[in-house]
């Protein structure tokens, strides 16, 4: 068990496109465990492997208040069903920044579990927002990309300043 380091925006490694998982072995299970632990500690409700510098298509999520409902999505694919929704998102790779992003309201998710078995679910509300946010990560996208140029610049400067300060300290 280990806490993994979360990459902080605008780290270039967050821009990488993650590769599908092909081998379902103990190493993958360990990665999922460590990612879950890292997410709970943050605290977050979702984490993509790319955020801990592992460019694989692996996502962990837990939306429950009790933090006892871990969901794992490997090689996920999202299909839009209907609608639009707005939600104020925050990201473990962009600490302290929250901004409203428009997403699809209802989606269908096809993915594999940690054993490599396929499953399919439909999602709306926060679950839908979160899975879209995490799948974006796998494609090298961060929620900040949806904001205006001006806001993106402001976020970038703010994060760089904080990284500098924490290194100085």
């Amino acid at each position: 068990m280990a806490l993994l380091e979360i990459l902080v925006y605008p780290d270039k490694r967050l821009r990488e496109r993650a590769k599908p998982v092909e081998v379902f072995d103990d190493e993958l299970k360990q990665l999922v465990k460590d990612m879950a632990e890292t997410m709970y500690d943050a605290p977050g409700i979702g984490l993509a492997a790319i955020q801990v510098d592992v460019p694989k298509r692996v996502i962990v999520m837990d939306l429950s208040e009790e933090r006892n409902d871990l969901k794992v999505f490997i090689n996920p694919e999202i299909e839009a069903i209907e609608g639009k929704q707005e939600y104020e998102e925050g990201c473990l790779s962009v600490p302290g920044v929250f901004a409203t992003v428009e997403r699809i309201e209802r989606v269908r998710i096809k993915a594999l579990n940690v054993e490599g078995e396929p499953f399919e679910i439909e999602a709306d509300g926060l679950l839908s927002v979160c899975i879209q946010h995490e799948v974006d990560h796998l494609d090298g996208k961060v929620f900040v990309d949806y904001l205006s140029r001006l806001k993106q610049d402001r976020v970038r400067k703010k994060m760089l300043k904080e990284i500098k300060e924490s290194q100085a300290a």
Binding site: P43, I45, E89, G90, H133
Partner: peptide
Amino acid sequence: MAKPNLQL
């Protein structure tokens, strides 16, 4: 994704 903070 960061957990929205209810208390805040």
